[in-house]
């Protein structure tokens, strides 16, 4: 069976810039097949038997860490979780030393989450092992963007030509940044919206529209993606109160009607119920929030499969 191997063009996935259109389609197509595995009575395949995948999480995470661990295990790999708090990081070991020590144990893949923007890029310069960025500071979260695009494609059968509104704390959001990169590359019309204090200057250079009016962003949208207010990343007070934020910037049963009748509502989680999204909308018929989580496993399985095959 002489079949051509399908591989991504880059060894690492540090940001959406590592993936061209063809790569994105390969990941999303492969994930369709991977998703079916999770519905089998025995949801495990032997493909990555003997591969070791280390999840290096220097910053807290529920979804992403669990998702990567499940993805690796369903493909038959051994997955090891490392979290900053329970490690020598608290004894003062540097990120690079920690990563070098983990690499000395010969993993086949490192999945890295770090509170500092650029940490995975820095490590990639020193390590031979392929790296997936699982979120670095306010920089990028490429696997989230891929699972978001997968979910959109699953619901809308396309990404190209759709109106996507990304709303909230754009400045601190690596999810927004990765999604703007990825979705514009796939031909979507992306609008980012938020209070002026939470809109990073120059974001329009990434190819999206920018507005500080919620209604303008949601009007006629096919996809409304709400972002979490990342209070833990605020260094100064950027809006008067959560209540005021919720009133002016929260998605609720009234303003969601501005979007197209068949629009879907997304959120990368964790959600602040009643702040950026009302419970009625988060749990309502338009919400695909839990689909996003489910699809995350399939997309990460696809990436682990495609990225571990190098000699």
């Amino acid at each position: 069976m002489p079949e051509e191997s399908k591989r991504l063009k880059h060894k690492n996935l540090l940001g959406m810039g590592d993936l061209d259109r063809e790569d994105i389609i390969l990941v999303l197509d492969s994930a369709v097949s991977m998703k079916e595995i999770s519905y089998r009575p025995i949801k495990k395949v032997p493909t990555l038997q003997g591969k070791t995948i280390v999840n290096l999480f220097f910053e807290p995470s529920t979804r992403t860490k669990t998702s990567f661990e499940i993805a690796g295990k369903r493909l038959g790999a051994d997955t090891i979780n490392f979290t900053g708090k329970s490690s020598s990081v608290v004894k003062g070991e540097t990120t690079l030393d920690t990563a070098r020590n983990i690499e000395a144990m010969l993993p086949d893949m490192l999945v890295i989450r770090h509170e500092c923007s650029g940490a995975p890029q820095m490590l990639a310069q020193y390590l031979k092992c392929p790296i997936i960025n699982a979120g670095d500071g306010a920089h990028e979260h490429p696997t989230q963007a891929l699972l978001d695009m997968y979910t959109i494609r699953e619901r809308k059968n396309r990404i190209e030509g759709l109106n996507v509104a990304i709303v909230g704390d754009i400045t601190h959001s690596r999810v927004a940044r990765s999604n703007v990169f990825g979705m514009t590359r796939m031909g979507a019309h992306v609008t980012v919206a938020g209070p002026p204090t939470l809109l990073p200057p120059g974001i329009e250079k990434l190819g999206c529209k920018v507005t500080d009016k919620l209604e303008e962003a949601i009007d006629g949208a096919d996809v409304v993606m709400m972002l979490r207010v990342q209070l833990e990343r605020f260094e100064t007070k950027l809006f008067p109160s959560l209540r005021e934020y919720s009133e002016r910037w929260g998605l609720n049963v009234r303003n969601v009607e501005l979007a197209r009748p068949d629009a879907i509502v997304m959120h990368p989680g964790p959600i602040n119920r009643g702040v950026e999204i009302s419970p009625e909308v988060a749990d309502g018929p338009r919400s695909v929030i839990l689909d996003q989580v489910q699809n995350g496993v399939a997309v990460r399985m696809a990436l682990l499969y495609l990225m571990t095959g190098r000699s």
Binding site: E3, S30, E36, Y39, R40, L75
Partner: peptide
């Protein structure tokens, strides 16, 4: 594809499997 014994060396396109009723 995911069960091939030469999967260490290749990464062919993975296509979907469909089993009626899933079992």
């Amino acid at each position: 594809t995911l069960y091939r014994d030469d999967i260490e060396l290749v990464r062919p396109e993975v296509r979907t499997s469909e089993v009626p009723g899933g079992t």
